[in-house]
């Protein structure tokens, strides 16, 4: 992919981010206007967020306009086409990021707090390293076990830090 093509694809990303920012900005403005006024509006809790909402919505528009100026608009259809999205989903890098993020989500949102931290950590390390093929399975098990043990012992007993 040429450098210019990459820039244009990033600009398409900017258009999407710009639109999201505009929506966030509008939401913040509405929410701020609904906040309680105690004495005057100038010292109300919503006064500063109101300005932030306006600035964020404005900067979202600027981002979209910048992308428009470098010619990103005609590319939006191409980048968001079914074929291209299929290619993106099947891309090795996308898949790797998705799997690694999913393992992290399971570790943080499901395992931690429901079982002992050491067991949760061991499960996380084994699954991540096996997926990444960091080492063969028995080396992965040994490295994960030693790392878990070291982390737990050093932080809990060495530095007297509570573990989740």
């Amino acid at each position: 992919m040429s450098q210019q093509n990459k820039e244009l694809r990033k600009a398409v990303g900017d258009v999407i981010v710009g639109i999201i920012l505009f929506i966030i900005g509008i939401y913040v403005i509405i929410e701020s206007l609904n906040m309680k006024i105690f004495k005057n509006f100038s010292d109300a809790p919503g006064f500063f967020p109101l300005f932030l909402g306006i600035i964020i919505a404005f900067l979202g528009i600027v981002l979209v306009l910048q992308a428009y100026k470098i010619g990103a608009f005609p590319l939006i259809k191409v980048v968001l086409s079914k074929e291209n999205l299929k290619k993106f989903v099947k891309d090795d890098r996308t898949l790797r990021t998705a799997v690694l993020t999913l393992i992290m989500i399971i570790y943080i949102y499901v395992l931690i707090g429901r079982m002992h931290f050491a067991i949760a950590t061991m499960l996380y390390l084994v699954s991540t390293m096996l997926y990444l093929k960091s080492a063969n399975w028995w080396k992965t098990l040994i490295i994960s076990a030693i790392s878990t043990l070291l982390i737990c012992v050093v932080f809990q007993y060495g530095f007297r830090i509570p573990l989740p």
Binding site: I108, L125, T128, M129, S134, F155
Partner: peptide
């Protein structure tokens, strides 16, 4: 090996 090192970083960030 960064593929070994980086996963170990995650539990430390959690703590």
């Amino acid at each position: 090996n960064r593929k070994i090192l980086m996963p170990i970083v995650v539990p430390m960030t959690v703590i």
